[in-house]
Design a protein around this nucleic acid. Structure first.
Length: 734
DNA sequence: AGCACGCCGACT
DNA sequence: GTCGGCGTGCTC
């Protein structure tokens, strides 16, 4: 008999790598795997999740305590998702309870009942079907109108929906119900997105149709497909067509997008093209909205679920397809706490669900390309830009020894003028916000430094302030040099605000929009600016890498990278990949409609091999060369890495802790431990930071080490004096 | 992570 | 004399 199990294994919201065993309650219904329970834990009571039922426990019987309340008689997490989270907890070596906590909506975490909230809906009753609404019209116009609406509607209609268009008709509804003409029922609230106007699908080109066929042919099996399509090649149309097929099969699609990619425009595009409601999951939702969207995904009310990183943990009633858009985007990896990669977990989940997964990008990560090469992923290419737009032309402007006006060379200014004269838009990229990255005293050479970080303060022009971009320290520019009291403090170097000022002077009649984190601070500000650009309210768009991600700007024909040098000399081994992706992504913004685009790159290193290969041979060849280099250097994806980070207020405790950690490890011969070394910016927000890098050619070796090692780190003598964290498959290592 | 216990400094 | 600082020990 299966239910003679007397012990529940419970994941508890506390930093432990193991489960806690509890006796089953006597007076309660039996708990279920995947359901929540209220348990006594130390001196408090917490909401835990049952991950298993068993008869065995290593704990002394007398020390076991009993579950206090069973909160769910049915699982809140489907078994598939629970298993995925247990797997992720082991893979990322993060406490199981905390992993589950990131997956559950906060209301459920706090013990709220798992049933969705209900709303009252009305539909026509058999007796009301044949009543002539017109006969009612004189005496009770509202009742007549309502009767008409409900007679014509196939689905029940909610109070809110009726009230919206017709004022408050609640009284009339009650009267119709009293006559037995209409009937009320309650249905769950889901806040689904749905559009009532439908946009027709464009005709797909050959490559698009081939890609769609490849995806739909795989619908009943696991297969990972890389959809590699240059910007503007119509990846979204491929997603849409594939989703149609999944809908037709009565199954759900989960679409993951980078944070900045989840715009109202994207949602509108999906709702207007697909005849199915859509649930949206992102960080801006209220607790209630999040819970409703989660329920809609979990019981299948939403055939399509779109969300950012954490949506990879959305429950799905009838999963049919997973799509990860912009799979190379770093925002898909969580950068603190439970440091999971939503892309990688999405692949694991698809494999466990035995459904296909599509990874889309114009600039795929080297990890993904390596998986294609090894035959694990299948590659689908969209080589042409949809609508026949030509590939933009690249030009390198060698700025060595040339006069620059706030970073803009003569030839660049001329190109800009030409494109503006032709009535087009230009997009200028400078990956540095603020006015100038340095404030210097001309008398003595003093530089404004952050007192909490190893960083310079950035001069911001509006309000004449200096700010630290790492800890948000912010103060007015001093009137005199704090060192020599000299009056001549000068901004040194280029930021977007400075280039903005120069451009306004040089092109006074052109409208200009600056798009960086400062100018898009408020909610929806980025959207509003991009929309204004789209409407042609500005001819020049100047900004940071945010610009590479906005939406279609068909009138942009000139893209300029003002300072390629800063991207060419990054110190992390992934810097070239990041630069290549940024360059190709912004270049893709040029000439998307009928006009030929031009991409200008200003640099002091025109011969740099990275630039040369990118502009003459393209991303694909770059990736090939970069993979070769990674292979020779034994770097990912040819090896696996994990990083142990530590930080503390005192300068050497992180180092001491990491040294103790290193000494306590029993590394297999194939594992190298590098460090401890200071982190790239050793002091940040008043904390000293250091790290220990683990590297091996064999992932299982690394996993085996971490499995024994990480749970014991908390017991190290210095562990309480530092904040430490483990990062498996880190994106930044140096 | 919480929460309690426990042992040393400045306050009504 | 106590209120309270945070070190350290524990959670099935």
């Amino acid at each position: 008999m299966a239910n003679c199990d007397a012990i529940a294994q419970v994941a508890v919201p506390a930093p432990f790598h193991h489960l806690f065993d509890y006796l089953l309650p006597t007076a309660e219904p039996p708990p279920c795997v995947g359901g929540r329970v209220l348990v006594p834990f130390g001196k408090r009571r917490v909401v835990g999740l049952v991950t298993g039922l068993t008869n065995e426990t290593p704990i002394e019987r007398r020390r076991l305590r009993a579950i206090e309340t069973v909160l769910d008689t049915r699982p809140v997490l489907p078994e598939e998702l629970l298993k995925l989270l247990l797997w992720a907890s082991r893979y990322y070596h993060y406490p199981i309870g905390e992993c589950l906590a990131t997956a559950l909506p906060s209301l459920l975490r706090r013990g709220r009942p798992a049933e969705p909230a209900l709303e009252r809906v009305w539909r026509i009753a058999p007796a009301g079907q044949t009543i002539a609404a017109n006969a009612l019209r004189r005496r009770a116009p509202r009742q007549a109108r309502l009767l008409e609406i409900l007679q014509q509607s196939a689905r029940p209609i909610g109070c809110a929906e009726l009230t919206d268009s017709n004022g408050d008709w609640r009284g009339a509804l009650e009267r119709l119900a009293a006559r037995g003409w209409i009937a009320a029922s309650d249905r769950p609230v889901y806040a689904l997105r749905r559009s009532h106007t439908r946009t027709a699908a464009p005709t797909l080109n050959l490559a698009q149709s081939k890609a769609v066929r490849a995806i739909t042919a795989a619908l009943n099996n696991f297969q990972a497909l890389l959809l590699e399509g240059v910007t503007g090649s119509g990846k979204t149309e491929v997603y849409l067509a594939a989703i149609e097929a999944v809908l037709a099969a009565g199954r759900q699609t989960l679409l993951l997008v980078p944070e900045i990619g989840l715009t109202p425009q994207l949602v509108a595009r999906f709702t207007s093209r697909l005849d199915a409601p859509l649930a949206v999951l992102h960080s801006g939702l209220s607790d209630t909205e999040r819970l409703e969207a989660w329920h809609a995904a979990g019981n299948g009310a939403a055939p399509i679920v779109i969300g950012t990183r954490s949506a990879v943990f959305a429950p799905l009633a009838r999963p049919g397809l997973i799509v990860v858009d912009e799979e190379h985007d770093t925002s898909l990896k969580q950068q603190d706490g439970f440091r999971y990669s939503a892309r990688d977990l999405a692949v694991v989940r698809a494999r466990r669900l035995n459904i296909p997964i599509v990874l889309g990008s114009a600039t795929p990560s080297l990890e993904t390309l390596y998986n294609v090469r090894r035959g694990r992923y299948r590659q689908l290419r969209l080589p042409q830009r949809a609508g026949g737009a030509a590939t933009p032309e690249f030009r390198i402007f060698d700025v060595r020894g040339k006069p620059l006006r706030e970073g803009l060379s003569q030839p660049l200014q001329q190109r800009l003028q030409t494109h503006l004269d032709a009535g087009r838009q230009a997009l200028l990229l400078l990956n540095r916000r603020g006015f100038a990255p340095t404030l210097l005293c001309h008398e003595c050479g003093w530089i404004a430094l952050c007192h909490r970080c190893d960083a310079r303060l950035i001069y911001h022009h509006p309000g004449k302030r200096v700010r630290c971009h790492h800890c948000n320290y912010d103060r007015p520019v001093p009137a005199h040099c704090p060192h020599c009291a000299g009056p001549d403090l000068r901004p040194l170097g280029l930021g977007t605000q400075r280039v903005e000022a120069a451009l306004r002077l040089a092109f006074p009649s052109a409208g200009l929009l600056r798009i960086d984190r400062d100018s898009t601070r408020g909610k929806g500000a980025f959207e509003a600016r991009m929309a204004a650009a789209q409407r042609g309210e500005a001819q020049i768009l100047l900004g940071t890498q945010m610009l590479a991600k906005g939406h279609h700007l068909p009138e942009v024909t000139l893209v300029a990278i003002i300072d390629a040098d800063q991207g060419l000399f990054g110190s992390d081994f992934r810097a070239p990949e990041r630069f290549a992706q940024l360059l190709i992504q912004v270049a893709g913004r040029a000439g998307r409609a009928a006009h030929l685009g031009e991409v200008v790159i200003q640099t002091h290193h025109p011969e740099h091999p990275l630039l040369q290969i990118l502009i003459h041979r393209g991303y694909k060849d770059f990736a090939e060369v970069a993979l070769k280099e990674r292979e020779q250097a034994h770097l990912p994806p040819f090896s696996a890495m994990a990083l142990l980070r530590a930080e503390a207020h005192e300068a050497d405790t992180p180092h001491v802790f990491l040294a103790q950690a290193k000494a306590s490890a029993q590394p297999a011969p194939g594992i190298t431990m590098l460090g401890p070394v200071p982190a790239p910016m050793e002091r940040r927000a008043g904390r000293y930071r250091a790290q220990l890098l683990l590297q091996t050619a064999h992932r299982d070796e690394l996993q085996a080490l971490l499995r024994n090692w990480v749970p014991r780190l908390a017991e190290l003598e210095q562990a309480r004096r530092v904040r430490w964290s483990v990062d498996v498959d880190p994106l930044e290592t140096l």
